[in-house]
Design a protein around this nucleic acid. Structure first.
Lengths: 220, 220
DNA sequence: ACCTGAACACCGTTCAAGT
DNA sequence: ACCTGAACACCGTTCAAGT
């Protein structure tokens, strides 16, 4: 009984391939299994076709990943309307970073495959707006946006990949065990080098970046 | 005559596998063919053995890449003895970035697989020394080192991978074509967003980071 | 124009078996 | 303990052939 077909086909008709459908399927695989599984072959399997078919709509794997990021960028909370411009700036950047931290491997690929979709432009516009409202000169604000977005992306990307926990632990040990005669500063600063929650360090980093952008003139 | 063996074997005796020998061979492949070819299989072929043999000395591919970076770190010029602490700081950081820029894919993997070898520790010690000599408080200097190294690594990593040129071009177009009514700041700042040589931007970024580190207190 | 099967040229990692 | 062949379970991308 359970195997009796309800129509001529047991499954819904295979939908036509579109770029949008491909990206949607890619996002679904990302959420369920991570970016490592968002491969041409796995995606083709999901869409009930062969990998070669996807190349009509997507140039290569990198472009596919960039499209996926653009899609997720639409879910990032916009800047809060209330508060000091610095606070608001930090909030947007934190929200962007938090989204990337849910998919660190995507952040890693975003560092290389630059997004250029509507959602990314909207984010740039927001950051420029906030910096300008804080009185930051136009050139500094423009170069500063790059710095802020790069920091957010790189911070998330650091959490990608296999054994980053293990590597971090190795560095922690190396810092704690550095002999004071050859590495006096490390020995004196070991605690400070390793202190702070990730949230506290991210917040401090954004504040330092904002202060630096404010106080550093662009050449010429 | 040319094919006559000079001893029982035509080739020198196969050297015993060591971790050091593996890393050396990996560096050679990196220089000749790029990180993409530094794979377990390719490396095994180079060392005239099977890929499984390498797993006695190296946990996995990520660890191999980290060891390669540590090796290259030894070639980075030390800090100049002369000059203002800011200038000296910028020089070391620029030298480190330049090395990574010769192997951007290695920078990409360094963002995830943290180095912890002697050369990396030496670099951290140098950066701490310079920041402290500029009067930066210990905690700020410690957190700042992270920020500076991350920026250098991420900047180099951005140049890794396939079609980053193409992606960059797409972003350039998107910024230039952003309509002024929906994206007034981008429209007004398009030139500034795209101005400056990579060198000028890197130099500005390091200065902004240093200024930010100087002017931003660590919480608590 | 779009879609496909099949092929080319690779991967990382594990494991049982050897020395 | 160290080393290995062979296997498992995958990859991206291209191309000639079909519809």
């Amino acid at each position: 009984m359970s195997t009796a077909p309800r129509s001529r086909r047991a499954r819904p008709a295979k939908p036509a391939l579109t770029r949008e459908g491909i990206v949607t399927a890619a996002v679904a695989i990302l959420r369920a299994e991570g970016l490592r599984k968002v491969t041409m072959r796995r995606l083709a399997q999901e869409l009930d076709t062969g990998p070669a078919s996807l190349y009509v709509y997507v140039r290569n794997t990198d472009e596919l990943h960039a499209a996926v990021l653009d899609e997720l960028l639409g879910t990032v909370a916009p800047a809060p309307a209330e508060g000091d411009w610095r606070e608001r700036l930090e909030k947007v950047l934190t929200a962007y970073t938090a989204m990337l931290l849910q998919h660190p491997s995507l952040a890693r690929s975003a560092l290389t495959a630059w997004p250029s979709g509507p959602n990314y432009l909207r984010l740039i516009e927001t950051l420029l707006d906030l910096l300008r409202s804080g009185g930051v000169p136009r050139e500094q604000a423009a170069w500063g946006v790059d710095l802020l977005l790069q920091h957010a992306t790189a911070t998330a990307a650091e959490h990608a990949g296999g054994d980053s926990q293990g590597d971090r632990q190795a560095l922690t040990r190396a810092l704690r065990e550095a002999p004071a005669d050859t590495h006096p500063h490390i020995a004196a600063s070991a605690d400070a080098l390793l202190s702070g929650t990730p949230e506290a360090r991210l917040s401090w980093a954004f504040q330092a970046l904002i202060n630096g952008i404010e106080h550093t003139a662009v050449p010429h």
